[in-house]
Design a protein around this nucleic acid. Structure first.
Length: 331
DNA sequence: AAGCTAGTCAACCGCCACTCC
DNA sequence: CGGAGTGGCGGTTGACTAGCT
């Protein structure tokens, strides 16, 4: 069958020879690839354009980083996968020099097995039921004592799927308004400042996929009215420590935080100070011209990437890294 | 040395979304 | 509006390799 562009032509399949690689590299570096379907013809290759594109992206591109994945890259993949699922192209964008194919292969061949060995469902990052009998009672103390907040985010999900709760930090909420100035709650977003409410209340956030990866639909639920999600991961995956969520009350997750992480946290705080308007989000998608266009960001097809860039990566991963390091990685 | 098995990874397949006519 | 062409993506396959028996 094949692709439309391939079905008409007599094309070669299988592994690429060094000569073919050379032809392709030579052509792309001198002419670019404005139209992949015409590349094989002009480059003198008996391949379909799609095959050329794949070969270039996955193997010949000059900015590719070859070799095994670092521990940091591995952690990034796990953390981003927890939020985005099998969206390898999006995940790969957070790993400079890595391709979606590479990430996918690495996940399937290594990370997946590690997670399973940890008793974690690689799809949801939750504990596999058969491993939940101890309910986390024998976890390291540092993971046991944390106040966990269930978090769901289904920006990529289809109806009926259960989202893996990500370990993520959202931008902090706006400061609590004066009592005489009730906060304006946009449609679909309910915010309750945890500093003014029961500290044990569970916040349930969800990001719904309304337009491709669009509007955030943030809702909270009180632990009194709606019990927290029952199938949470006792390892702490997918839950927000309230200290992480609200930077105003940030405390070190663990005493042994290393200097590098301290430095990263300092950088983060500096960024927050430099970009205070970032938090003035409008979840209706209206742009109030108050700095970075967060509202629109959630409504753009590349929402995930920007959302991750602006929220998760600088803080969630780093804050979480120490937790991840608690796990025995014995690959 | 030969056969088997499991792991890795490049490449293909099929689908979807977008653009253009 | 609808079909063709194309790019992009995720899932899957199959060739190759290393390790074991």
């Amino acid at each position: 069958m094949g692709h439309h562009c391939c079905s008409k032509q007599k094309v070669k399949r299988g592994l690429w020879s060094p000569e073919e690689d050379e032809k392709l590299v030579k052509y792309i570096t001198t002419h670019g690839h404005s139209c992949w379907s015409s590349v094989p013809k002009h480059a003198g290759l008996q391949r379909c354009g799609k095959s050329c594109r794949l070969r270039w992206i996955n193997y010949l591109r000059p900015d590719l980083k070859r070799g095994s994945f670092s521990a940091q890259e591995e952690r990034t993949i796990i953390d981003v996968h927890r939020i985005l699922g099998n969206r390898w192209a999006q995940i790969a964008k957070h790993l400079p020099g890595r391709t979606d194919n590479e990430v996918k292969n690495f996940w399937n061949s290594c990370i997946k097995k590690k997670l399973i060995a940890q008793g974690l469902d690689p799809k949801t990052h939750n504990l596999i039921p058969s491993h939940t009998k101890n309910n986390g009672c024998n976890l390291p103390r540092v993971l046991q004592h944390q106040t966990c907040t269930p978090f769901t985010m289904n920006s990529h999900m289809r109806v009926g799927e259960t989202m893996n709760p990500p370990f993520i930090n959202l931008p902090p909420p706006p400061p609590p308004p004066p009592l005489h100035d009730p906060i304006q709650i946009p449609t679909g977003f309910q915010y309750e400042d945890p500093r003014t409410t029961d500290p044990n209340s569970a916040l349930l956030w969800s990001v719904k996929d309304q337009i491709p990866h669009a509007t955030m639909d943030l809702a909270h639920t009180s632990s009194l009215e709606n019990p927290p999600i029952s199938s949470f991961n006792p390892l702490g995956f997918g839950f927000l420590d309230d200290n992480c969520l609200w930077p105003s009350s940030v405390e070190p997750l663990e005493a042994q935080q290393n200097p590098q992480q301290d430095h990263q946290n300092q950088n983060l705080q500096q960024q927050e100070q430099q970009q205070p308007k970032m938090y003035e989000m409008d979840f209706d998608g209206r742009n109030e011209e108050k700095g970075p266009d967060m509202g629109n960001a959630y409504n753009r097809p590349n929402f995930d990437l920007e959302f991750m860039d602006s929220t998760l990566l600088p803080c969630g991963i780093f804050n979480n890294s120490s937790s991840m390091e608690q796990l025995p990685w014995d690959c």
